[in-house]
Amino acid sequence: MTLEMFFQHFLNALQWGSFYALIALGYTLVYGVLLLINFAHGDIFMVGAYIAFFIASFLLGSYSLQLPFVLDGNTIFVITVIITMVVTSCVGVTIERVAYRPLRKKGAGRLYVVITALMCGLVLENGNLALLGASRKSFPELIEKSIYTIGGITFTNVKILVIVTTILVFILLETIVRKTKLGMAMRAISYDSVAVLLMGIPLDVVIVFTFILGSSMAALAGVLFVTAYPVLEPYMGAMVGWKAFIAAVVGGIGEIRGAFVGGFILGFIEIYVAAVFPSTLRDLIAFAILLLLLSLKPTGIFGIARAQKI
């Protein structure tokens, strides 16, 4: 592998890892607060991509109902991102409200909630398939792609956008979790949800906030993903979701830094494995490496082993 190739793949890996990182974030946030593996999250990502598709198409005037004015691509992109994040958050919160919360109030075991999450994911996936059919949709090109070449490495403005956005999101989230009251409440809940209630912190509000954060980040990942790879299909979230979940665990589930590092590690492994070996071996090697990492450090990279009390 030449040095140029290496850096070319490096950039690709950063972009690929960004998607995983953004999705892994949703797993980690929800797990941190509820100790729930929200298996519907990958499909929230898919839902985000589809919502973005419909909003962008509408804004571009592809439907009979049209806007009275014409917007340029970049404006449409920004509006699409914002509306998508809001609408997808509503989907995430609705799932929490309708499916998870009643179970939580009943004190059902965690594993039952996980199964419910799996079922919610299936409903989203297959509901989409049933409503929209199996045909793939292609996302309209909102941002005019420009290709730059510096020192033999080519990259597009979209790639830079994805990577920069992810880094900004990371800084923003770290700040929210460390500096704001809601963020601190989130961290407190993961330590002791009973004591948090006694301290007068509104548990449900914090949980809803967590789902809003997680779902909107998945939506953001969805928009960015289809901007970079403009193909939409109902099962696009399932595989990516499972993998992002594993990335979150490798990073240390419950830790925001962990989600990002885990996501990028997975991105790097996948891109470099595909660059060196036949691409059919990609999953095999990627998962083998992740398993190895986990067996070396069972709590994940940033995870702290919680001492069990007797």
Binding site: L103, G109, Y112, I115, T116, L118
Partner: peptide
């Protein structure tokens, strides 16, 4: 057909709500 895989998870979610065990 496709609706089967919408209906079955939905049934299970409802079952979980009323009989989580």
């Amino acid at each position: 057909q496709v609706y089967k895989w919408v209906l079955i998870p939905l049934l299970l979610i409802i079952l979980m709500l009323y009989r989580p065990e």
